[in-house]
Amino acid sequence: MSKPKVSKPKVAFYWCASCGGCEEAVVDLAEDILTVADAVDIVFWPVALDFKKKDIEAMQDASIAVSFINGAIRTSEQEEMVNLLRKKSGLVVAFGSCAHLGGIPGLANFSDKAGIFERAYKLAPTVTNPDGIYPQTETQVPEGSLTLPVFYDTVKTVDQTIDVDYYLPGCAPPPDLILNAVTGILEGKLPGKGAVLAPDKSLCDTCPLAEYKPEKISIKDIKRPHEVVHDPEQCFLAEGIICLGPATRSGCGERCIKAGMPCRGCFGPTRDVKDMGTKVLTSIASLIGIETEEEMSEEELQKVLAKIVDPGGLFFMYSLPSSVLRRRRIK
């Protein structure tokens, strides 16, 4: 790269409601990160570098080439920061499942702020809080007033908060996809806006177990992963273990499958699907006892269905905030 130093594109990384795994993923690029770091000017990366919000505020609008934002939006601070980054950036990439779909933090949408606070600050076995004191957005102390961001009832995806240009799926996104995306951006070779930077087909397409799949699947009984010893030469569905692979975008490198665990859908749905959870639901439900459906008694059917203890949590594990209903209804 022979371009003069001044013209290096500026890049920002930011994290919202996330576990930090996505940051790890960037670091995991190992040697590749050095090539990247060499080609760009990282202007903001709270996890690794000491830049401040005011540094960003001082920048010209759209002067950052691309901001990679991971994590979902659950507090007012996160909302403020992503809005700021949006203003200052040419491109925004929602990085990782939480930014893309809401991710695991998004499961909190089955509850609300009051429920979460009660659990976290009162009912949790490790907590003693007889007076029921909860965090406040403002607390007066002798030294002045202390503030905390507003904790929202609802976890949002990044694109429910700001305009997003691309999505890098995964919990966390695999290095090859990150590198492809970064290189693509640097070289200006990008698909249309709004694209998810991963293949369009579902996971079965690349799944190493697909070759063992029977021609017709009939789920006779539903098993939870700990209830059976998984045969490494058998498709999970054929074993009665619910796998979200059929509904999940591929590109992850089948990390879970290779480790003997069924897919839980971190890559999100395929291109045309609006509600990943119900897509999983319909495909699984349609396969229950197909061979004997006409003879199946009410009890037998109920018994099988009862094995799916928490359909919401299972089918919407990574995608609740981006689902059609987004959250549990607030009455």
Partner: peptide, 8 residues
Amino acid sequence: DLCGACGT
């Protein structure tokens, strides 16, 4: 383009 051959 979308079918992953899940067989459902």
